[in-house]
């Protein structure tokens, strides 16, 4: 029997996001926050993408976006994540309610998988947000190549992540696996020390 000497640390990483200013001072800091969201994965069954589109338009006013894009509906956004597969993201509501609503709308046209507990959404915003992300993000986030409403699934800090630019500031929502959240935040805040970061 043998064990490591790892010390325990908080799973959610909430201790890493203590309110206030951190890192370098004097420049333009970025803002980092954890967003409380529901995330539902919708995968169209074979040949049923049209039915899924109609269902989500009716249920949530979502016009399902194509590759690399997001679209906003009534209180929810849809992010393209894979061929005929989307994340529907909305502010956290009653447990399972969003998934149930989507499932009811789609019927057997889609596999609807609640990932609200399996994904965490971290937002980063500020004029230097793209600079902080570029420390690990290999996707070009320059305004000429990316912009509000754009989505990219890629790697951030050795982890798979879906990146959604929400405005021109720029602000980004970063959707990551919840069991890696702490590790992700450790790396993100470390990267943001150079510009300084503020936690609201």
């Amino acid at each position: 029997m043998s064990v490591s000497n790892h010390s325990g640390s908080n799973h959610s990483g909430s201790d890493l996001l203590a309110p206030g200013a951190h890192g370098a001072v004097g420049g333009e800091p970025v803002r980092i926050a954890l967003r409380s969201c529901d995330v539902v994965q919708v995968l169209a069954r074979k040949g049923r993408a049209g039915d899924v589109a109609a269902a989500l338009l009716g249920a949530l006013g979502l016009v399902l976006p194509g590759p690399g894009h997001a679209a906003d509906g009534r209180g929810a956004s849809a992010l393209w994540v894979q061929p005929e597969g989307w994340f529907v993201v909305a502010p956290r509501g009653a447990d399972g309610a969003l998934a149930s609503a989507i499932k009811a709308a789609c019927g057997d046209a889609a596999s609807v998988i609640d990932q609200s507990h399996g994904r965490a959404v971290v937002s980063i915003s500020g004029t230097r947000a793209a600079w902080v992300l570029a420390k690990s993000c290999r996707v070009d986030l320059h305004p000429s190549a990316f912009g509000p409403g754009r989505v990219a699934s890629t790697q951030l800090f050795h982890l798979a992540a879906t990146l959604h630019q929400t405005d021109a500031v720029p602000s980004f929502d970063l959707i990551v696996f919840s069991t890696f959240l702490r590790s992700f935040l450790e790396s993100l805040t470390h990267a943001a020390e150079e510009t300084g970061y503020v936690v609201a």
């Binding site: 325990g8 799973h11 050795h158 919840s178 069991t179 790396s187």
Partner: peptide, 20 residues
């Protein structure tokens, strides 16, 4: 920065805080 604890990500169970 990919050294020390940042060399590779660490994955924690949702029950991690209880275990700690």
């Amino acid at each position: 920065a990919n050294i020390g604890k940042h060399f590779a990500p660490t994955r924690l169970s949702p029950l991690h805080d209880w275990h700690v």
